[in-house]
Write a protein that binds this DNA or RNA. Sequence first.
DNA 1: CTGAAAGCGCTTACAG
DNA 2: CTGAAAGCGCTTACAG
Lengths: 338, 338
Amino acid sequence: MRVTIQDIAKAASVTPSTVSRVIAGSPLISAKTSQKVRKVMREMDYHPNIIARSLVRRSTNIIGVLLPGASERVFQHPFFFELLRGITMQAQLCGYSILLSGAGSEEEERNRLHDFANGGVTEGAILMISRTDSTDWESVYPAQFPLAMVGRPADAWKDRINWVDSDNLEAGYRLAGHFLAKGRRHIAFVGLAPNIVVTKDRYEGYRKALGEAGLPFDERLVVDGQFMGGDERVLTEELLRCGVPFDGLIAADDFQALAAMDVLAKQGVRVPQDVSVAGFNNVPLSEYYRPPLTTVDVNACALGEEAVRLLYRQLQEKDRSGPSHTIVPTRLVVRASA
Amino acid sequence: MRVTIQDIAKAASVTPSTVSRVIAGSPLISAKTSQKVRKVMREMDYHPNIIARSLVRRSTNIIGVLLPGASERVFQHPFFFELLRGITMQAQLCGYSILLSGAGSEEEERNRLHDFANGGVTEGAILMISRTDSTDWESVYPAQFPLAMVGRPADAWKDRINWVDSDNLEAGYRLAGHFLAKGRRHIAFVGLAPNIVVTKDRYEGYRKALGEAGLPFDERLVVDGQFMGGDERVLTEELLRCGVPFDGLIAADDFQALAAMDVLAKQGVRVPQDVSVAGFNNVPLSEYYRPPLTTVDVNACALGEEAVRLLYRQLQEKDRSGPSHTIVPTRLVVRASA
DNA sequence: CTGAAAGCGCTTACAG
DNA sequence: CTGAAAGCGCTTACAG
């Protein structure tokens, strides 16, 4: 039913080889033949079958993207959408399509990744997983399947795989520095999730700034909490409950920071007069809140673009150079809250 | 390099036909042969080449998803991510993969859609376009390419294409009814974008409720505005500037409603005491705002799932039944703002 | 510059 | 129950 290269060949009185060459823009073909064939292709509304082409070329120009925890709340963070936007746009520029897979559980993640690596349709994959304890891709990496991770992997893998990340430590350091410059001396940190690298890095940066400023560190001002854990208010409530006074609050994520401002307001604490508050990620609504939230923009879109570039390079070079990584700069966005 | 069905056949001393049948789980194969072949497949870590299979089966089990305006702000609305989540999850359940394409401009949209329809890799596509004036897919539909739209298309196409939508008119009607029940009599509507069906529907519902309540309608209380236009504050500022007093404000989208609350607060107007405010879409932060926002949850995830189901049905039935549509119920979420 | 032939890795009637 | 053969729609050495 679909018109094939054979149909065109017949109609143009040439062979499939010639039609194929015309499509490929081969310089061997005479202008006359080329025009004749093109005309027929247009008239018959011919479109090459990409699947057939992929089979013979052993290349599909498709890369897989794995969305973690499709059924988890994490997934709903605007960060991921921005990231996906960057990936999609850059892939298009590189001539690649995106095959999107979601995974509800870690086991599913493993399975999808396995499909990516073994199905023969994706030539590489981008992973949005950044647990420190993640071993999902270990079983895939040895297979020489090109991979790029968003988020720095555990140290053991840092030099063995492509990855892209924000300089979260520096960002935490700079944000805390901003608090110090505003005269804050008792700065709390909420939302440290020990198994999520990004929150750890941000926390380390905060610690570093406090340390350099010679401030005593009170670990009661640090509240652990999962990224997108559900109700972010509890973190600040827990902080208040410990009774240690504070004049600054840095949250590992904007949602936690916004929830914090809500809790503080209910307690009659004024932001920023009594307590400065800031977060990370510059979520869309952070500028609409009252007061607008000071935050760090990690440029998720650029992270996505860089991940594609890294993967693209590996796909082109065919193992010529080893894996590498890219650090995408962050931007401190100072608003009224701190 | 990759192990093929031939390699397995050789190693198991059978023919490729037999291996293929084992993979397919054909009942013709003897248990003994089946076990032998399976063992070899496992030992050699064999995985079928999906591309080759697709070529002969003339079916890829891939559907395309077109993300509109990848470079526009609209794209950043959490609604789309939720939608995508629903699509991804349901597709997985139906045994389909998602090929994701973004488009910056309308021309690109057309091109991507063309690729979907003619490239031979996607068997159908889901479109997230709901301009009333959109003719993008007209050029595609005649080609009998299975399509499902998210958002009701223009009337001319309502019965000729699969689509899924929320009952936005009913939702607008119900929300306005809620305002009326609270004693509001001068209800403004901001964010009507005449070229976006959803905002029109919501507006119509609002009008209907006012009409049935026998309230005079003052068109100065209706402010046009694009969905995710950039600065949503201007809509409310424009409303205030017209000088007509109002005690209720319904926005076509939560972002506009949140911006409205911000503007009103700065003017010293109290929400909900002086003015009730509500929006649509139940964006993640709407519950964290002060006051928390009353809104309508359109269940974007379910919309995505239904879109896949519609498309799936058409792909299975092979033209046996015509296109159909699904209405996904909305849920009024009453919080403190109205 | 063009054609004939082989092959990419599968599946599926058709025989037996 | 299994095999031999043809074919899905392309591309690409190899000849000429």
